[in-house]
């Protein structure tokens, strides 16, 4: 008897749950549009794997934006295809602000390459610029080269110097090519698989010079294993006050990488404003500042207008550089 009664209860509860769920999905969803954004979690697509610099940045923003957005932000990694997989996924969803993505300079520069067939910079809108970082040229600390000019002099007298860095046609490759061309030193570029491989080959003495990013090199410089010769930003880095910029040395080369957020073009104005405001506030949270300090990263907020201009300028610049150094 008792068990039958219980079963009745279970059935009733189940029916109630179904009714509620149905009510939710039929009754609430159409009203959602009228509701204030966001009515459901916001997905942040990220083209690099979990734990990569852009991924960690996105997760930190998501974590610190909790207080400032009524719904959580969820990071989803869509890796592969040099960003193509993520782009395709972003373009498949409506431009309603519920799917946004991390944007990095490498991704946008990639639109000059094979991805051009399927995607264009005009399909995106750019929301917030979060971080900016230059690149650097480094040698092992027991290297005879103390400055970039010593390296160039040597390279001119003893051709050809080998420079290591990331994939062919990546920003690092373009930087190496630009420096080689402006200084007139003959150079061969060795494209390594990633930051770790660059370090292994540099520390192991398999390559005399590498181009890399300060994030990768910070701890090796701090522990005295690696010497930075030059950075490629507008200004010197606070943690490397004695390392000059390429500009200071007389080369007209400024290449930086940025990380921020973007979306499929056509967000409603109020949705855009809500997202930008939430990310801006997240960037001011102590938790986010703590993450920046621990990783020697620097944040610089830019809103949609300013960030779009910056992305476009960088895209054009890299395009010209590609044509100049690669296509001949």
């Amino acid at each position: 008897m008792k068990s039958r009664k219980n079963r009745g209860k279970i059935v009733l509860t189940a029916l109630a749950v179904i009714a509620l769920a149905a009510g939710y999905s039929f009754g609430v969803t159409p009203a959602e549009a009228a509701d204030k954004f966001p009515a459901k979690p916001v997905t942040i697509l990220n083209s690099s794997p979990a734990g990569s610099p852009a991924d960690v940045m996105a997760r930190q923003i998501a974590q610190n934006a909790k207080k400032h957005l009524s719904q959580p932000m969820v990071v989803v990694n869509k890796t592969g295809g040099s960003g193509g997989v993520m782009f395709a996924s972003l373009m498949a969803d409506p431009a309603d602000g519920y799917t946004i993505s991390t944007i990095t300079s490498a991704l946008i520069t990639g639109l000059h390459g094979d991805l051009k067939k399927d995607f264009s910079i005009d399909q995106f809108e750019f929301l917030v610029h979060v971080q900016k970082e230059p690149f650097c040229i480094v040698v092992r600390s027991d290297s005879p080269f103390k400055t970039l000019n010593e390296l160039i002099d040597h390279a001119k007298k003893n051709p050809r110097i080998k420079m290591g860095g990331q994939a062919t046609y990546s920003a690092l490759h373009l930087l190496a090519l630009a420096v080689a061309e402006e200084s007139g030193m003959p150079m061969s570029y060795v494209p390594y698989g990633g930051g770790s491989e660059i370090i292994t080959n540099l520390l192991g003495g398999h390559i005399p010079v590498t181009v890399s990013s300060p994030t990768t090199m910070n701890q090796y410089v701090a522990s005295g294993k690696v010497r930075a010769l030059v950075v490629s930003g507008e200004k010197r880095l606070p943690q490397w006050k004695d390392v000059p910029t390429l500009k200071e040395l007389g080369y007209n080369i400024v290449i930086t990488q940025y990380r921020g957020f973007g979306a499929k073009k056509g967000l409603p104005a109020d949705v855009r404003a809500t997202l930008v405001e939430a990310i801006r506030k997240a960037m001011e949270e102590p938790g986010f500042k703590d993450y920046l300090a621990k990783n020697s990263q620097f944040a610089e907020f830019m809103g949609p207008a300013e960030f779009t201009a910056a992305v476009r300028a960088d895209y054009e610049y890299m395009g010209k550089l590609l044509q100049k150094v690669v296509k001949k």
């Binding site: 794997p49 979990a50 734990g51 990569s52 610099p53 991924d55 960690v56 997760r59 770790s196 703590d290 993450y291 621990k294 990783n295």
Partner: peptide, 11 residues
């Protein structure tokens, strides 16, 4: 390599 990510997340 993915473990490195775990370290970075922890600062």
């Amino acid at each position: 390599a993915v473990l490195i990510g775990a370290f970075t997340i922890q600062g």
